[in-house]
Amino acid sequence: MALSPALRELQRDLESEANALSKIQKDISKNHQVRKQYIVQLGENELVLKELDLLKEDANVYKLIGPVLVKQDLAEARANVNKRIEYITAELKRLEGILRDFENKQTSKKESIMKLQQKIQGAQAGKTKA
């Protein structure tokens, strides 16, 4: 019975580790979703930029702001879209970095959980023998 508290401790550790791991996995899936959204937006913006580039200089361009259409300069619209694309790509890069970070954490957590499980198994084996 002397091993029992140690075993309990190990199991508590394991539980907390498992919780941390599931949290990381949640974060990763969230990250994936955000990234997906950004990728869609990037595609749309690129399409817009392509169309804007195809327009003649004297074409009328409007931007929908709230309920009204505001007339915009074509060059300004292009600059805006370009800026937006830049922003999105930067954001995507950032998210990618975060994702890599999360994945590293995930693997390390998995390893520690494996170790804990082995320890618990060893402890249980010792207990049954004793």
């Binding site: 937006q41 749309e44 913006n45 399409l47 361009v61 409007y62 931007k63 702001i65 879209v81």
Partner: peptide, 12 residues
């Protein structure tokens, strides 16, 4: 008025 996306419209 064609919606190009991202709230941009062009008169075409």
């Amino acid at each position: 008025l064609v919606l190009l996306g991202e709230g941009y419209y062009a008169e075409r």
